[in-house]
Nucleic acid binder design. Structure first.
Lengths: 256, 256
DNA sequence: TAGATTGTTAATCGATTAACAATC
DNA sequence: TAGATTGTTAATCGATTAACAATC
C-alpha cells in the first residue's frame, strides 16, 4: 500500500477498496472517450471491454460508489463521469510542483493530461542556478532555495519528485516540512515519510524487469514445448486480450 | 494482470506469484546498494526495511526462489543479487526499442538505469521525418518506416511505446507483427494484443488521480475530526513509514 | 410482457502476516 | 550451549468472478 496512514484500515478509504480506487481513473478515461463521441449510455459489458477489465469487477467497483446504473439500460455516461470525478476529487483544483527539471521533469511539465483532470503545474523547481528563470512548458523554473515559499504561496499539497536518487530524500523532507502531504516519486529511492504522507512511486526500470521475467519465461516455455511436442511447436495467438496496467501489486519504477 | 497468456494460471509463473515477481526488483535495488557499500550479509529484517516491505513477506518471497539464506546469520548479499538477477532474466542482454521520441521518449533514452540491469536501447524510432538522423542520448533516431527491419536486425523482443495515444495501437501492431512479445506502454490507450504478448502500462495521470483521492480523503477526515474533537484536532505524525510503490493493484499512468 | 442489464451474493482464489519450529 | 534468524505453517484478509435475483 502506498498510504502512510495506519490509524485506519490501510486498504479501505471511505469503504472503497484500494484496488477499486486504482481502477476508477481507467473507467474515467474510457468514459471520457465515450463522452467525446456523444455516446449517451453504456453497459457494464461495453465499458469493461473499453477499460480492459472484467464486467463483473466493474459492476462491483461501481457498487461501492452507489447505484448509478439503470437495470436493462446501463449507465448514463455524463452522470458517471461526474460521479467518478467527484469521488476521485477531480472536481477541485490541485496545484502541483515538480522538483527536478531534467529530461523527465520537462516531459511531465509538458504533459497535457494534467489540466483536464484538475491538476495544475503551479511551479517548476530545480537546484541548478543556471536553470532558474528558464521557461519549460511556458512555466519559469524557480530555485530550490525558494521551495518552502513556493509551496506556501500556491497552497500545494501534491509534489512530484524527478530529481536524481541522491537528492530525493532531502527534497521530500523539505516538501513535507512545507506542508505537502502527497508525493509522486520518480527517483529510484524508497522515501522515508512521516505518518499521514502518501507516497506513490513510479519506476520504469522495475516495469522493464517484470517484462523481462515474463519474456524469459516465454522463451523457457517455448523450449520445453518443443521438447514435449517435437519440433515446430509454436504457440498460436488466439486473439485474447489480457488485462493491462495495474498488476495487483505493481510498484512502478524510475530513472536515476 | 498484465499478462496476455491465459493457457496457464495467469498469476503464477514457474510457481512464483505475480506479487512476488513485482517485488524482486525492489529487493534487487536494495541489495545492489548494500553490495556497493561492501556489506557481506543482511538479515531479512534489515533488507525488508531498506526495501520498504514487511520482513515476513520478504522471507516468503525468497522462499519461492529457494533456500538462499542461513539461519542465525542472514543472506549473503552477492549471492542473493545473483540469484534474483538470474530469476528476473537480467543476466542476459535485452535489446529494447523506444518508439515516439518526444519529451518522454528522450527522457527514457537518457535514463541511466537500463544498462546496469541488462537492458540496452537498441534503437530510437519516430514518425517525424525531421527527427530522422538526429541523435538523442547518443543514439540516432530512425524513421518508423524501418520499424520491422530494426526489430529483426536487433533481435528486439521488448518495445517501449511513448507515442501520442492515437498512434499507439498501430505502433503496437507493427511491433507485435515484427516479433515483439513484451510492450511497455506509456500512451494513454488500452492496447489490444494477441495472446502471448505482455503489456504493462505506465500512466502518470492515474498515479496523480489516486493521490488526489487520498488527499481529498485526508481533508475530509480532518474536517470530521475537527467536528468530533472540537477545534485544533490536528493529526500528529507518528514517524511510521508506509510501504511505497506497488499498491496491490495499481495501474500506472501516462501522457497524452 | 419479454428482454436486457444492473447490483449483490457467495464461492474461490491469491496475498499478507504473525508465530514458531528448525537450524545455523 | 545460547542466541539469532531463516523457512514454513496456518490464519486472516482482500480481490476476483460466476451466477442470478431484482428490476428497468
Amino acid at each position: 500500500m502506498a498510504t502512510g496512514r495506519n490509524h485506519r484500515p490501510a486498504t479501505r478509504s471511505r469503504g472503497i477498496p484500494e484496488a477499486t480506487v486504482a481502477r476508477l481513473p481507467l473507467y474515467l478515461r474510457a468514459l471520457t472517450a465515450l463522452s467525446e463521441r456523444s455516446v449517451p449510455t453504456v453497459s457494464s459489458e461495453e465499458l469493461a471491454s473499453a477499460a480492459g477489465v472484467n464486467s463483473a469487477k466493474l459492476r462491483k467497483d461501481f457498487s461501492y460508489l452507489g447505484s448509478y446504473g439503470t437495470r436493462g439500460v446501463g449507465y448514463d455516461v455524463e452522470y458517471l463521469v461526474y460521479q467518478i470525478s467527484r469521488e476521485l476529487g477531480l472536481t477541485q483544483d490541485w496545484p502541483v510542483v515538480i522538483v527536478g527539471i531534467g529530461n523527465l521533469g520537462a516531459a511531465l511539465a509538458n504533459y497535457g493530461g494534467f489540466a483536464s483532470r484538475g491538476f495544475r503545474v503551479a511551479a517548476l523547481i530545480d537546484a541548478d542556478p543556471s536553470m532558474t528563470g528558464k521557461q519549460v512548458a511556458g512555466i519559469p523554473v524557480q530555485h530550490v532555495d525558494d521551495l518552502e515559499s513556493i509551496v506556501h504561496t500556491n497552497g500545494v499539497s501534491i509534489g512530484v519528485i524527478t530529481t536524481p536518487g541522491g537528492a530525493a530524500q532531502q527534497v521530500c523532507e523539505r516538501l513535507v516540512g512545507a506542508g505537502v502531504t502527497s508525493i509522486l516519486n520518480f527517483a529510484p529511492t524508497v522515501l522515508q515519510v512521516p505518518e499521514g504522507v502518501d507516497v506513490r512511486k513510479v519506476d520504469l526500470s522495475i516495469e522493464l524487469q517484470i517484462l523481462a521475467f515474463h519474456e524469459q519465461r516465454k522463451a523457457a516455455e517455448d523450449l520445453s514445448r518443443r521438447d514435449e511436442e517435437g519440433p515446430r511447436g509454436v504457440a498460436v495467438p488466439e486473439g485474447g486480450r489480457g488485462e493491462q496496467g495495474g498488476d495487483g501489486d505493481i510498484p512502478a519504477v524510475m530513472p536515476a
